[in-house]
Amino acid sequence: MGKIVNKRELAQILDTSERTLTEWQRQGMPMAVDAGRGSANQYDTGDVIRWRIAREANGEKESAKDRLDRLRGDQVELDLLEARRVLVNVAEIEPALGQFIADAVALMVSMPDKYAPLLGEMSGADDIHAALTDMMEELRQQLGRYEFRNDRDSGAAAEADAAAAQN
């Protein structure tokens, strides 16, 4: 046995509309208390969930109206997330992210020129390991300070980052 709830509470629990619940009642959704027309019915959440699972297991598909309600609800949620800037359209970030990757690659390509002479002078594995650790830390710091801009000229940005890596 689940919790006994009214139609509004059940709609919230199942993330659906009260209108959908009315349609499900016509399709046989169980009610704990059938209060009759104009009165508030009550529902056992456990019975309703078991009924929904059984319907899904038997391959019963959602109605066109249920699907439309679900899709509208999904769209409202997406719109809210976009308005709060929790969800961002890929077209807004793709240019800046592409530029970041290109600049990161340019920075990494420039590192051997800086560290090869240092590594050539080292003879011990511990010294080489320390130099490589320093190189990775420098890379992390430079990428951590990266400023995202959509209008960066990739050639100039890569040259500036490579010059910074040399210093």
Rank of each mutant, 00 (worst) to 15 (best):
N89E: 15
L80I: 08
P112Q: 02
V88N: 07
A156M: 05
D134C: 05
G120I: 06
R85M: 10
D126Y: 07
A157W: 05
D127I: 01
I101A: 15
A104L: 03
A156S: 04
L97E: 14
A102W: 08
A125T: 13
Q75T: 09
A106G: 10
L118Q: 03
E77W: 00
M122Y: 02
E82Q: 09
A116L: 06
E121P: 03
M135E: 07
E138L: 11
A91Y: 10
Q99V: 11
A104E: 04
A91Q: 15
E92S: 08
A116S: 06
L139F: 09
M122E: 01
L80S: 07
L78S: 05
A91I: 12
M136K: 00
D79V: 01
M122K: 03
E147I: 12
D79M: 07
Y146M: 04
F100R: 15
D127W: 01
D126H: 06
Q141S: 12
A104N: 02
E138F: 04
A96T: 11
P112D: 02
Q142K: 05
D74A: 12
M108V: 11
I128F: 04
E147K: 13
L80E: 10
Q142M: 11
Q142R: 06
Q142G: 00
M122P: 02
G155T: 14
G155F: 11
E94V: 13
A131E: 11
M122G: 05
E121M: 09
M122T: 03
R84M: 07
G124C: 05
D151E: 08
A156E: 10
R84N: 08
R152E: 07
E147R: 14
V105R: 08
L107A: 01
E94R: 15
E147C: 08
M111P: 02
L119V: 03
E121C: 05
M111H: 01
G120F: 04
D134R: 03
D151R: 05
L139H: 04
F100N: 10
G155L: 14
A125Q: 14
V86P: 03
R140H: 11
V109A: 06
G120E: 12
S110K: 07
A130D: 11
A125S: 14
P112V: 01
S123G: 14
R140E: 08
R84T: 04
F100E: 10
Q141W: 07
E147W: 09
L132C: 09
R84V: 05
H129I: 10
L143I: 04
A83Q: 10
F100I: 07
L81Q: 04
A106C: 05
G144Q: 00
G155D: 13
L132W: 02
A125E: 15
S110H: 07
